[in-house]
Each structure stands twice: as C-alpha cells, then as structure tokens.
C-alpha cells in the first residue's frame, strides 16, 4: 500500500510535468469549464428570478443542490473523467495492453496516467457557490453538520465516479463509446439540477433506484435544508448517500474487471 502512495505521488508529479508542456491548453480548458458551469447557474438564476421557486425550492436552495453536484462531480472528474474519456481510444488502438503487463492494479494505473486535474476548477467553483448559498440560507453550521457534509460529498463523488467508470467501461464492448459516456454523464447529471420531486413518479424511481443520482444532491440536501420530504421516498433516504456511493462504486468496479477480462486487444 505504501508503494501505491509513493506511486500516486509520482503520477501527480509526472502529470504536472507533462501539463506544463501544454500550459496554454490547460488554462483554456480550465477557463472554459468554469464558464460552462457558470452558464448553467445563470440559467437557473434566470428561471428562478422569474418564477421565485420551483416546487417550493428557492434560488439559493437550488444553488445549494447545484454546489453539491458540482463539487462531487469535480472530485469524480479529476479521477475518472480523463481515463474514461480516453479509454475508448486505448481499447481501439490496443494501448491498454501496456497497463495489463505492469505489476499494478490496472485501474489505478490508468487513473495515474490519464487523470485530469483540470476538474479542480469544478471544486473551486462549487465551493464558492456553496458559500454564497449557505450565507443566504438559514443552515445550522455545527461541526457535526460540516463533518456529515464532507462524508456526503465523498459518497456523492464515489457515486458520480461509479457512473463515469461504468459508462467508460462500455468501451470494451462498443467501439464508439464516447457518445455514451457524454450522454450518460452529462445527460443524467442534468436531471438533478432541480429537485427530483418535479418529475413523474417513474422518473423519481429511476433516479433513486436505478441510476441513483438523486443521492448526489437531492436527498442529502433535503436534510441540510430541513426540507419537508417532497419526494415519494421515506425520510431515511436522506442518510443514504455514502452507502449508495460505495455500493454503486463496487458494482462499477466489478463491471470494469469484467470488461478487462474480456478485453480483446488489437491485431497490431
């Protein structure tokens, strides 16, 4: 394990060393990502400036949801987005071979080699948005609350990471899977911008039990904002994020190992 820690440090060092060669591109990506996310927030503001609330959630409450989504997405994105985005190419060209002949967990290796620190911007922006919304809301800020928030964010990060991992793993079976990664990751994410209580029951069920994105922000936010439960699910779901995150991640990891075992490499 200690050997993995040293390696992780080295991977980070090498990552920044190679990013230095593409400094301009790195900064552009960083800025562009921040703009994209801010534009999403602007959209929320336009709507709630006009309509005041959506299903009883005010602008700052939706902002709180948004920040949880953003921070956990940033965490998962740093680790998994790059590798899963590149996996399609690695499988198609057979470059993945070299990860399977190293004395390392292939996923750890893949992440170490292709992780994208750019997503750090999401976390920064998310924290700023979180700060603004908390200042404008009446939320108890005890040590217990803050600790639980951190745990929830980690669980939500695992959950988002699991979705990325699972979507990316499809590259082992589909040649062009990038569309899938993008559709699933961005598409499903757009479902949880607003409280899931706005959807028909069947969508709420899907978002809770099938692709449980509701645990990323909606259920835990219900707790922090002391919202009267408005979804069709019982109150204890508010505590489920870390557990759901772990379970989903383990499932995604199983899928990944299954994919690796079925990996066909290439003829040249």
């Amino acid at each position: 394990m200690g050997h993995y820690a040293t390696l992780a440090g080295l991977f980070v060092k090498v990552h920044f060393k190679s990013q230095l060669e593409y400094r301009q591109a790195f900064i552009m990506r960083f800025v562009v990502q921040l703009i994209s996310r801010s534009v999403e927030l602007l959209g929320i503001w336009i709507l709630l400036n006009k309509f005041e609330h959506i299903n009883g959630w005010t602008f700052y409450e939706v902002m709180f949801l948004f920040s949880m989504n953003l921070i956990s997405y940033g965490l998962a994105g740093i680790v998994f987005f790059g590798p899963m985005h590149d996996l399609e190419r690695l499988v198609r060209t057979g470059e993945l071979d070299s990860l399977l002949i190293a004395p390392l967990n292939p996923l750890f290796h893949l992440v170490g080699r292709y992780f994208s620190s750019v997503f750090f911007g999401h976390i920064l922006l998310g924290l700023v948005i979180l700060g603004i919304s908390v200042l404008n809301l009446d939320i108890g800020l005890g040590a217990g609350q803050i600790f639980w928030f951190a745990v929830v964010i980690l669980g939500a990060g695992l959950l988002q990471g699991a979705i990325m991992l699972a979507a990316g793993t499809v590259s082992f079976w589909l040649v062009k899977s990038r569309a899938l990664v993008n559709t699933v990751v961005h598409g499903v994410r757009s479902f949880i911008v607003y409280p899931i209580s706005i959807y028909d029951n069947w969508i709420q069920v899907v978002l809770t039990l099938v692709l449980p994105f509701a645990f990323v922000s909606f259920f835990p936010a219900e707790h922090f904002l002391s919202k009267p439960e408005s979804s069709i699910f019982p109150a204890f779901f508010q505590w489920g994020t870390p557990l759901v995150g772990m379970i989903l991640f383990l499932l995604a990891y199983r899928l990944w190992t299954y994919g690796v075992d079925g990996y066909q490499s290439t003829g040249s």
Partner: peptide, 23 residues
Amino acid sequence: QRTRLWWDIPVRDSFTLMRHMYG
C-alpha cells in the same frame, strides 16, 4: 510496435516511474 514510456516526459522520468512501479 508500441511503447510503454510516458509520451510527454523525458525518458529518465519513465525509468523512475518504473522503478517505483516494480519496487
């Protein structure tokens, strides 16, 4: 036909990485 070396960094750094990877 393929390399295991890290594309964007000097050969030396790839060696260091391998050293740690293989302990």
